[in-house]
Design a protein around this nucleic acid. Structure first.
Length: 684
RNA sequence: CGCGGGGUGGAGCAGCUGGUAGCUCGUUGGGCUCAUAACCCAAAGGCCGGAGGUUCGAAUCCUCCCCCCGCUACCA
């Protein structure tokens, strides 16, 4: 890349309704921070922009549940996020928020511009409207009886009981979540982004991004190939950026539309803060700027398809030049879940451990090409056997040696032997090697190369046996230690993007002026000291982490998993007794399978035609993973004959077959009868 | 079913523009003693999910299949 280009780095705006967890860090913030710190050390013109995303329905719901204003919710999390990032060493140039005026204005301007240029079109849809609350109900604001499973309290987007997604209009006995009244169906109009019409423009743009990661491009092409649908950019809601059009006073911009605009408004806020209010234009209006969005893979569609189209539609701004989206980080083999509290929260982590071991662990195991896993055991091992034993211990053995044997003065080098030369060459080559990987967003490889320098240095120390040469050949010993000290200084500079806190600590032990983060990357290649330079006394760079420190964390996560699986089956575990009357309501009968076939687009469902006495019925059963359709035909099974009919995937099901299964569903066996009895026979 | 990602020594991964399989951790044996019981050396351990095919030659390219994960979906 051209060295003089301006670089504008953004990290996905975190949603202000919950704390930051490991997945967020691994996906976006940490790789972005490492990249930016590195580029700063290279003296590039770079800014790092972020902020919190503070609009949208989930925030209004959280506010109502807690009986506070949405503003109070976002204020709280804005502060938590900001603090956590700071303590974790994520150095944004600006951390803004989308509830600011400046952002509202910017979003409205862009909306109007797109509106004026024909990128938006108005469409009318039907939605529930609560006359009591005087507002349209977003999907999650309306509850009712699930049309599929009759579960009460299903929400307008999805039924928690059967898991199916619901069109809110389909809910039986719908009621407004806030006031309980029955809503009416009303027409409402919204503006849609004409994605369908402009998809060729997007494809052309994507075709040019040859340097993007393959997973990002593939993902986008997948979307394009199935065809894009227009997306609503406005919503019937009060919390958000008001739609700047007459007749739309009670509507706001859909949160996904205004959120990425936050990158621009945050940059504007930054330039105002530094007293150069026009400075933001140097980045956003210069087509040569490299605009780099660090995001998680869940955000690819917005940043690689929709957002570029918004920018193209507007016309003035630079388009994203890189979107190094990461995959997901799992936790102890399971998916992270904010709603189920299955996560390691950054603020909680920071209350117990220092930032750098986590930065290291996540960076060295970053989900760059595929999902990766974080486990506390691995965290401990990486900290103890890598950070402490290899990096920390090398620094410690070197500096302790100098303190004890050379009165804390770095000795001067004499004649160099082959090994010394080799070590020096290594020092010279490592900065560029590490740097090149970082330029390509390959954080793992970069970090591995840094650690290799420390590994090599340990070998060098061993092979030169300074503890012997101090007596037998003091000159040689001095040379060895001089070079080892240079390794330490070099390490401090190279560590800085990854392990900023430890890097500064080492920097001050080495008695260097200022902070390492002001240091030039290339200085790591020489890293020499003036003659007679004195260092400070040493301190441990990385403390070991003991079993009893991580065990509570492991147990905590295990408990959440255990709890989750018992909660899934509350009725069964209650062990309640029922009366005979209750039992007799259930009509169990013998039936014979006449036909069986798979249900299209459903991996678990089979459609069965069964003979039940005189009648023939159709039922749908979720047993496809366990039985082939062909092996079922002719089998005698037991069905619940008086279960009310249900539509499953649009297919009528009149009854339910019985089957035994293990809790984890690893096995399932049909209930059948012992001898060939007439179908329709009752089971009592 | 559809889309996407993946299956490589005990664990976690690299290699995948083809040419006798590599890294880190762990294990075993040895060395050293300056150092956070750290460091260094050596060894054991993989027929690279399965079956075909292309090729002088494939973990690496093509085809089919199996399995895992995510999205989608899903009444035991």
């Amino acid at each position: 890349m051209k060295k003089n280009k301006k670089i504008l780095v953004t990290a996905a705006l975190p949603y202000a309704n919950g704390p930051i967890h490991l997945g967020h860090l691994a996906g976006a913030y940490l790789p972005a921070d490492i990249y930016v710190r590195y580029q700063r050390a290279r003296n590039r013109d770079i800014i790092f922009i972020c902020g919190s995303d503070e609009h949208g329905v989930p925030i209004t719901i959280a506010a109502e549940r807690q009986n506070v204003t949405p503003q109070a919710i976002v204020d709280k999390y804005y502060q938590i996020h900001k603090d956590s990032f700071e303590k974790f060493g994520i150095q944004f140039d600006n951390y803004s928020r989308t509830s600011l005026k400046i952002h509202h204005k910017m979003s409205q301007d862009i909306f109007l511009k797109l509106h004026g240029k024909g990128y938006l079109s108005e469409k009318t849809t039907t939605q529930f409207y609560c006359e009591h609350c005087d507002r349209f109900l977003a999907d999650r604001y309306v509850e009712g009886i699930c049309p599929f499973c009759n579960h009460e309290g299903a929400r307008g987007d999805q039924c928690e009981s059967c898991g199916r997604s619901i069109d809110q209009i389909e809910l039986i006995e719908p009621h407004c979540v806030t006031c309980g009244n029955k809503p009416v169906i009303r027409e409402t109009s919204h503006w849609f982004l004409n994605l369908k019409h402009y998809q060729h423009q997007i494809r052309d743009y994507l075709d040019k991004q040859n340097h993007w990661k393959e997973n990002v491009k593939n993902f986008c092409y997948g979307w394009l190939n199935t065809g894009l649908e227009d997306r609503a950019v406005t919503r019937d809601l009060k919390w958000g950026v008001p739609v700047p059009l007459p007749g739309y006073e009670d509507k706001v911009l859909y949160v996904w539309f205004d959120a990425p605009i936050g990158y621009i408004s945050s940059t504007i806020e930054w330039s105002q803060k530094i007293g150069q209010p026009e400075k933001w234009k140097d980045y956003w209006l210069d087509k040569e700027t490299r605009l780099i969005h660090f995001i998680g893979k869940d955000n690819i569609v917005f940043h690689a398809i929709i957002w570029p189209l918004i920018l193209m539609g507007h016309g003035d701004y630079v388009l994203p030049s890189d979107i190094p989206a990461n995959e997901f980080l799992n936790l102890e083999g399971n998916k992270l879940s904010t709603s189920k509290n299955y996560a390691v929260w950054l603020d909680e982590y920071l209350a117990k451990f220092p930032p750098d071991p986590l930065r290291y662990c996540i960076a060295v195991n970053a989900p760059e090409t595929k999902d990766s896993d974080f486990s506390w055991k691995d965290f401990q091992t990486r900290n103890n056997s890598e950070l402490a034993d290899i990096l920390g211990n090398f620094v410690n053995r070197t500096l302790t040696f100098v303190n004890k044997n050379f009165d804390s003065k770095i000795p001067e080098a004499g004649e160099l032997d082959a090994l010394d030369q080799k070590m020096l060459t290594r020092i010279r080559k490592t900065p560029n090697r590490v740097g090149n990987f970082l330029e390509n967003f390959e954080v793992r490889k970069a970090l591995t190369n840094l650690m290799d320098l420390a590994r090599f240095a340990n070998k060098y120390f061993n092979d030169q046996t300074p503890w012997s040469t101090i007596r037998e050949n003091p000159e040689k010993c001095k040379t060895t230690l001089n070079i080892c000290c240079r390794v330490c200084k070099s390490l401090a500079i190279l560590m800085q993007p990854f392990l900023p806190f430890s890097a500064e600590k080492l920097w001050s032990i080495l008695n260097q002026e200022g902070v390492v983060s002001d240091c030039q990357w290339d200085d790591a290649a020489e890293a020499d000291f003036p003659p007679g330079f004195t260092i400070n006394s040493t301190a441990i760079l990385f403390e070991k982490i003991e079993d009893d420190q991580i065990q509570p964390e492991i147990d905590k996560l295990k408990n959440i998993i255990a709890k989750r699986s018992t909660e899934d089956q509350p009725e069964v575990s209650k062990n309640n007794l029922i009366s005979y009357d209750e039992f007799s309501k259930v009509q169990l009968r013998v039936a014979r399978v006449l036909e069986a076939e798979r249900v299209e687009k459903a991996d678990k469902l089979l459609k069965l035609k069964i003979e039940l006495g005189d009648e023939t019925r159709q039922i749908v059963a979720g047993i496809a993973p366990y039985y082939q359709p062909s092996e079922l035909v002719g089998k005698l099974i037991v069905v619940v004959a008086n279960l009310e009919p249900a539509k499953i995937r649009g297919i009528e099901s009149n009854g339910m077959l019985l089957a035994a299964s293990l809790d984890d569903r690893s096995r399932l066996a049909l209930v059948t009868v012992d001898s060939d009895i007439t179908t329709g026979a009752k089971i009592k």
